[in-house]
Amino acid sequence: MPPPPIAPDGPGQVPYGYPGTAPSYGYPGPQQTPYVPYPTGNGYGWPVGMQLPASNGMGTASLVLGILSAVGFLMWPVALVLGILAVIFGGIGRGKAGRGEASNPGVALAGIICGAVGIVLVAVLFAFAIAANS
């Protein structure tokens, strides 16, 4: 089907999908060169100019373990281990946040505090148990 005739004052606005216009969504038109995909790298490494995503796992794990340690201090062996792990993971998370690898230094600090509270509660419970038996 031939295109419609051109008006005497010029073609005006070309309608969408008119033959010979720019391709839509990367599909070549009838008189365009074939689609050439965007060049990619060799598949190794991280693209230049892009930042790595934040690694917030240590701070989050610290907060979860710290809360479990503080809430479950009556199960003192488990709470003691969870509190120690919360303090360790919180320290690692704060270090990552300081280096810019993580974006949650407050969560890691809250994990350290909750873990320390859990450890203190276990120590107080243990001290009361020793005082009650003597």
Rank of each mutant, 00 (worst) to 15 (best):
R99S: 15
A86I: 05
K96A: 14
G26M: 08
A86W: 02
G72L: 09
I67M: 14
F126N: 11
I119C: 15
A129I: 13
G59R: 00
V78E: 11
V122H: 13
F73E: 00
A116N: 11
S55D: 12
M58K: 00
R99W: 06
G98W: 02
P2V: 11
L63S: 04
D9Q: 15
G90V: 00
T33E: 09
A132H: 12
G10W: 01
P34I: 07
G90D: 00
A70M: 00
P105H: 04
M58F: 03
P2T: 12
G106I: 01
G59T: 02
V48W: 08
G45N: 13
G106R: 08
G59Y: 06
L52I: 13
R99N: 11
V81K: 02
G57L: 05
F89T: 07
W46M: 14
P34Y: 11
D9S: 14
M58D: 12
T33Y: 10
N104S: 07
G93S: 02
V81M: 09
A131F: 12
A102G: 13
G90M: 01
G106V: 04
P34H: 08
S55T: 09
E101W: 11
A54L: 06
Y16I: 12
P11Y: 10
V71T: 13
I6E: 06
W46H: 15
V64W: 14
R94A: 14
Y25Q: 03
G49F: 12
G10F: 06
G111E: 08
L63F: 03
T60A: 07
G43W: 07
G93K: 05
L63V: 05
G90P: 01
A110G: 07
M75H: 10
G95W: 05
E101Q: 13
Q32M: 05
C114Q: 10
G41E: 13
Q31G: 03
P3C: 09
G43H: 14
V117C: 09
L80W: 09
K96H: 10
A123H: 08
Y35G: 05
P8K: 14
